[in-house]
Design a protein around this nucleic acid. Sequence first.
RNA 1: GCCCGAGUGGCGGAAUGGUAGACGCAGCGGAUUCAAAAUCCGCCGCCUUCACGGGCGUGGGAGUUCGACUCUCCCCUCGGGCACCA
Length: 852
Amino acid sequence: MSRYTAKDIEPKWQSAWENAGAFAAVRDPARPKYYVLEMFPYPSGRIHMGHVRNYTMGDVIARYKMSCGFSVLHPMGWDAFGMPAENAAMEQGGHPKDWTYGNIADMRAQMKPLGLSIDWSREFATCDPEYYGQQQSMFLDFLEKGLVYRKNATVNWDPVDMTVLANEQVIDGKGWRSNAEVERRELTQWFFKISDFSEELLEAIDGLDNWPDKVKLMQRNWIGKSRGLQFSFGLIDGPDGHDRIEVYTTRPDTLMGASFIGISPDHPLARSLERENQEIAAFNAECRRMGTSAAELETAPKNGFDTGLRVRHPFDTAWELPVYIANFILMDYGTGAIFGCPAHDQRDLDFAHKYGLDVIDTFVALENGTSVGNEAFVPPKTEKVRWLKAFGWDETAAGAEAIDAAIAFCEENGVGMGVTKYRLRDWGLSRQRYWGCPIPVVHCDTCGVVPEKKENLPVKLPDDVTFDKPGNPLDRHPTWRDTPCPACGKPAKRETDTMDTFVDSSWYFARFTAPHAATPTVMEDAAYWMNVDQYIGGIEHAILHLLYSRFFARAMNICGHLPASAIEPFDALFTQGMVTHEIYVTRDEKDRPVYHLPEHVEWHESGARLGATGEAVEVIPSAKMSKSKKNVVDPVNIIDAYGADTARWFVLSDSPPERDVEWTASGADAAFKHLARVHRIATDIAGSETPESGADEALLREMHKAIHDVTMGIESFGFNAAIAKLYAFTNTLQKSDAGAGARRLAAQTLAQLMSPMTPHLAEELWLLLGGSGHVTGAPWPKADPAMLVEDSVTLPIQINGKRRSEITVPKDMAKEEVEKIVLADNAVQRALQGGAPKKLIVVPGRIVNVVL
RNA sequence: GCCCGAGUGGCGGAAUGGUAGACGCAGCGGAUUCAAAAUCCGCCGCCUUCACGGGCGUGGGAGUUCGACUCUCCCCUCGGGCACCA
């Protein structure tokens, strides 16, 4: 009897699919289309279990939809620009291009044995000049439509390496290589006008019915629409050109509780003051010696500097407020200046206590409202409070009403304007790095900033660069910058900044519909394939990547590269969890942790030990697989040991897809055993010739239930639940004493239901059991509704909400009849002790509750 | 700091507001075997009881309900994001 040997089965079916062209996506107007896409990978060089999980989920959907008769597009590509390639070049020598394309070849070779239903003819990398050339072409279109512009922005500057640092390269305020104190520096950079779309991007979220609520909420908060008051405080004896400070507040109702003004160290007034005042200059310099990331700024200790300047309160010109420069106020938000109301904002309160400023209650709680102490009083805006300092609203108004009234009052009295603002800032796309898409513009002394001509695209990256020095190799390349001005023809210089890699990933999904076209997209292809019907990826992309892609789709539509129907490019989104693993650690002589790979750890009765030395190993709970912690399992090894179907089955079976899954050796083992068992059962059935039996119908009923449950499981992304049903159905099939005909049909159906998850094994069993053609693409089985209904139903009986008994009654028995049977039940009689129940609740078909 | 999630047996997890623990792992008992591996059958939340049964139980605390893992509020712990990691 043949055994289950994945090593033989899997390559065989992979080449069979390839020869049949089973996964080529073809535009077929006669069939409905389905576009399933997993977020494309960064080519690090090795696939990891997270990839396996991500692509297997997409593959299940793709294969299932194929079986349901859809024309399926399931492509794969590479998010190939970015810093790791340059870091590798700096550390190990070599060229980012060679490193990247080498990694792509390696990863493709690791991925193919997974047996994914991918149309590899559509593969591309974002670092292919054919791809980034089209991106440059779109950049020029965006420029023409006013969707891109230049302005100054702050970057992290490493004064030793003389280079711009990414936020992740700033560690405790210092450069990761040089260890030098990072400075903030202003550069002129390119920006996409995503803020023009704030309202539209916000409103359109309501239409994203098949996106997770949490992602929609995060995007709404990110866009951050607010209604507030913009007004100014008159400055007393300010320096030349500064007679007022412009402020935006979402809480104008607390204006009478203001006790100081805070301005950003980068505020024009602060910059003006630092020229005259050494101390202010020193304070500002100190503030600028911090990274640019919001997390860093907001967790740093809050510091302020009293400028000595005073402003007048707009409602009372005799009331003067001090002006502080504060390190936590960003020039990018609002006007770069705030008024502090310590009583109703914790940060302001801490600041006030630190600098001995007034705390003025503007409202208190309705019931026994007391003055603010160490905790700011910040009730929900819908909660009614008692106002001590209202101007124009009821004494017991809620915050929301008070805000509206305050804005109205201020407008009437000429103190500012009610305005709507968005937190969303324009998207800075300039990067001072080599390994990215060159920004196709030229700087001419005569003509200024001039777009490159489209016929000169792509502006290709030069290959002859070195990474022995920090900074952008494009800047120091001897000739690359030199180019004639596209406008006047005189010698000019190319822009040396490249694009943020988020640009690359903001339209790749559209490019997959016509991956080798000479234009960014082809309308007929985009119109047929877009939108992505199911997008699958990590929750870490909930905001930036997905929001940028939504913006890009709109911008591409404006420029004629996508139809209007595709401005929301992802119809359904699923965010999958990570693959985690336990961490194994020993200590070196200095008590520093030494991590060990799972394959080097053995389990003994005394616990985990190193296989080589027998040394005891500490086991730390599961965390995301990472090279530094060595808690990684290489998919290549798993496929080698068990086969791809086992790896696929396991990553789907052990956890709900949206949650993390912990990789365990025993779980992988169990998955393999199960597949071998299915193979064995099917082999037995294939050789069996028992006659029909009375058990046939029971088995077929279970089969139809399995079809129903598994189909629902796949449709609802409940892969783990679908697999649990498949386990249960396998148990039923194994124990069934139905005849060979019924068992063969059940086994064929089992193979088919398993085919999206374990396609190779399913093909093998399909063949073995006499199915016609490939199971891949065979019509998906349909559950017969008549086989799903049961004649009788078991009702649990609760007494006071606790299950105490159960009865089995005909499915459609009348309530009154059920009640009679319940009251006659032994457990109920015992509980009633001759009395009558206070209440008897019968939920037909579900449950009975007797309330005493 | 701010925004968003998650928390259920020894472990991974299941459960349209309706029998908490499906299914799997580990464990225990048995069959098969000269023996083992493999396989097959059964048991398996905790406490209590000879047993029938009873009590407790979904991170902690309150609330809504005939009934709460599920809904509301507060808290704790862990994870994701915070605009130059991808």
